[in-house]
Each structure stands twice: as structure tokens, then as C-alpha cells.
Amino acid sequence: MTGPVPPSNVLQAAPLLQLQSQTALQITNPSSASGGEERELGAWETFKGASSGNAILKALTRASSRLGRGARGLGSVAGLAGSAIALPGGISKAIGSIQKAWESGEGGDIARASGDSTTALSTGTRLVKHGLESYSLGAKGVAGHLARRAGTEAFKQAAPGASKAVVQAAAKTAAKQALAEATEKAARRGVTAAATAAAKGGGTLAKGAGAVGRTAAKKLLREGGEAAAKAAGKAVAKGALKTGAKAAGRFVPGLNVAIAGLDTATAVATLADPKASTGKKVTSVITAAGSIVAATNIPVVSQVGAAVSTVSSFIGSFF
């Protein structure tokens, strides 16, 4: 890779775009990036999370076990997720800083939250008003992100001493042009057209055994009875993982508090914990799935006596 070309003017876009393509090459061609092709498969498989359901979680947990063994010798930080190991350097200072911010605010007197402005608007209402749409980037957003990333990094390489404001301004200018190009490129390559066509088709590919699409689900519900009930039961049993992925990907403080999301986040944390037993992992998946219908993951409060005696009468036949 050739060295970075310094721009003649910090706000001039062309040199940045040139650098951007070099940076993009570094990103899309891993062998050109520092660190080469060092591929810590286990660590990544553990980390990448529940983005597409069970298959991902399968990999996630398998890798997690391997990681616990390998990480110690390598000095890797992997495998510490979910643990209480403190980070070195600066952690006390960082905690002290936010503790100070908390103490300096008007609410530092441990005020009960009822009636406080922070909870006056129910989180449920907020969720309805601000759906997932705001998190979807689409062609334009993805292209814009890549453009900004390339622009910022390129400029940082070209002018490492530049102030944050200058870097941002330069990257923004570069991104503006790059965004138009990237969007056009995506359209030219057929990404947008393919997505538009597939969206209109709605997903007509043959599905695996037992899979139920939109149309089949509607038909089942319309017909009702045992078949619908069984299908719903199976859907509930598998329902948690996608929700878990959404919960992991979003971060909007003050907005996203829902019990079902908390349950699935707990399940994902258990799966990623190398110290959790297989039995605990199995039950964490099962209970998180059930909690999507707000029923099963309530170990103390709602498992009433009658159900306990019922369970004791049949549990031996399964285990």
C-alpha cells in the first residue's frame, strides 16, 4: 500500500476521496491491513452474537468454551465477557468521573423515581413512537457510513495532528461526495434493485421443514384449533433469539426498557459465559424464549404451588 497523500486544503474533498479508496482497500482486503489475516475464529464466533438465530448461538457458545482454554495462554482479553474481572488502568478514575457527574446533578439525593421527569413518559409509549425503522440504514445509510468512515480515517492519516473539529469538517465534506458516489455505485451494481424486487416478492423461496411464513401463519390462525396452537407453541419456543439480537444492537438511553428484552439479554450473556454449565445454557435459551410470551421466566414470583406439585409428578419421566 502506498503512503497517504496529504490534502492541499483540509476542506478539499478530492485528496480525501483518494485516501478514502486506499483506506477502503485496507478494510475490504484484510491481507493489506495491519495484523494481516490473524483469524481468531473462536473469539469472533463467540462475539458476533445472535444476529440470525440458533445457528449463531450455536457457534457462539461452542467457541466460548474453546476460548476459555486458549485465551489464558495468549494473553487475550477474550473470554472475559460476563465476568467480574476489573480492567486495568484508569478504571477508578473513569468511575470517579461519572460518580461526580451523578453527584453534581439535582437527582443525586436518591430521589424515588416516581413522578420524576425521567420516568414521566412511559417507556412503552416511547417504544411505540420510535420503532425499529430509525435503526435501519438501508443502501443510503450503509453507503454513508462507509463513506464517513473512510473519509475520517483517511484524513486522520493525512493530518494526525488536526483538531477534532477540522477532522469532522473535512470528513463531512468528503463524505458528502462519497455518499453520492457510493449510493450511485450501489444502484449501479444492482443492490438497491435486488432489494426492491425481493421486498416486493416478500420471500417466496422454499423453506425448511416446519417453517411457517407470513401467509401460512395467517392461515393457521384463521383456522384456529390444535394445529394453530401447536404451531404457536413451537414459535414461542424459538422466539427469543431475534429479539435478543435487536436488544444487543440498539443503544438509546431513556428509550428501550422492556422486560422481554432484559430476559433475552440475560440469556445471551449466559451463553457467552464460558463458566456457565451446559445445563444452565440450555435452560437460559428455553426460559428466554418462553418469556417472550411473558410466562415462563419468573422463577420465584409466579411459579405457584399447584404447578410445583404438578411438575414433581412428571419430571422423573423426562430426566
Binding site: 420471500g203 411457517v212 407470513r214
Partner: peptide, 23 residues
């Protein structure tokens, strides 16, 4: 790829509809 993703979302939506009905 887009067809496969649309099919995947279709299946998810079918499952989610059944879960929503149960809820």
C-alpha cells in the same frame, strides 16, 4: 442473496405473528 433474506424475514414474521397471537 436478497431473495434468501426476504425468505428468512418471511419466516421470522410468520413466527412472530404466532408469538404475537399467543401474547
Amino acid at each position: 442473496a436478497m431473495e434468501a433474506i426476504a425468505a428468512e424475514i418471511d419466516e421470522e414474521q410468520g413466527r412472530e405473528l404466532l408469538v404475537l397471537a399467543s401474547q
